[in-house]
């Protein structure tokens, strides 16, 4: 019979909380860069200028079809040699997850923009709006509302994917767990506690996401996936 002993974990819980903070920082920064980049990629992909749409389609598909861990290794181990910069685990994580999530956000944006009736564009044009004005004032406000559930789902996926940064020694929650498990010789308790922390965090976000989706459904808003 296994003797559970959480004392070692609980006395070093501040190490795990530090890791949790870093996990949230990486997630927030990747979102802050990934969402605008995703919008840019989506608009490029929808553009009538062929090189632009083909180029961004390639970027989107490339980052959607390659494993995030391979991307992280590439940015961490290969890019610094290629362009002669100093790379830290933190920068590699931000760059990787910003670009990786932007490829997925781009598809959400594209779905949202395409779901808006063509008449909306034509109406905006008819009253003399430019492309940028129609997009900002007419199309995006409607599209974004439909995209909220898909957006939140992608953000939750991103939060889970950030665990990969532990493999390049960035001190996120997963990395701190590995560290603590080795130090305390209590992998069972450490990894179980960490799994519970992740669960509580992600489950809370999932429940919020579901509540928002129901709220949108009640207001008669259709959503895109």
């Amino acid at each position: 019979m296994v003797e559970w002993n959480f004392l070692a974990v609980l006395s070093d819980i501040d190490l795990l909380l530090l890791g949790l903070g870093n996990t949230l920082v990486v997630t927030a920064l990747a979102l802050a860069f990934g969402i605008p980049l995703g919008l840019f990629l989506a608009l490029s992909r929808l553009s009538t200028i062929r090189p632009l749409s083909v180029g961004s389609a390639f970027i989107i598909e490339f980052f959607r079809t390659t494993p995030p861990l391979v991307q992280l290794f590439w940015f961490f181990f290969a890019l610094p040699i290629l362009i002669d910069v100093r790379m830290t685990p933190f920068i590699a994580a931000i760059v990787t997850f910003s670009i990786q999530s932007s490829a997925f956000f781009a598809e959400v944006f594209r779905g949202g923009i395409l779901s808006i009736d063509k008449g909306q564009w034509e109406g905006a044009k008819a009253i003399g709006m430019t492309y940028g004005q129609s997009l900002r004032r007419i199309v995006l406000p409607q599209a974004v509302k439909r995209m909220i559930p898909a957006f939140m789902e992608r953000s939750i996926e991103l939060l889970k994917t950030t665990t990969l940064v532990s493999t390049v020694a960035y001190a996120d929650l997963m990395f701190q767990a590995n560290d603590l498990a080795q130090k305390t010789f209590r992998p069972l308790e450490v990894y179980t506690v960490v799994a519970v922390i992740y669960f509580l965090l992600i489950f809370t976000f999932s429940q919020i996401s579901i509540a928002v989706e129901h709220r949108l459904a009640r207001s008669g808003e259709s959503t895109v996936r």
Binding site: M174, A177, A181, Y191, V194, Y198, F203
Partner: peptide, 23 residues
């Protein structure tokens, strides 16, 4: 479904590798 959807897959793999054998 809730447990496995709401935890990262890397945590699951590591848990099965290091914690599950002890348990």
């Amino acid at each position: 479904v809730e447990i496995f959807r709401n935890t990262p897959v890397l945590v699951q793999i590591i848990w099965f590798y290091y914690a599950f054998p002890i348990l």
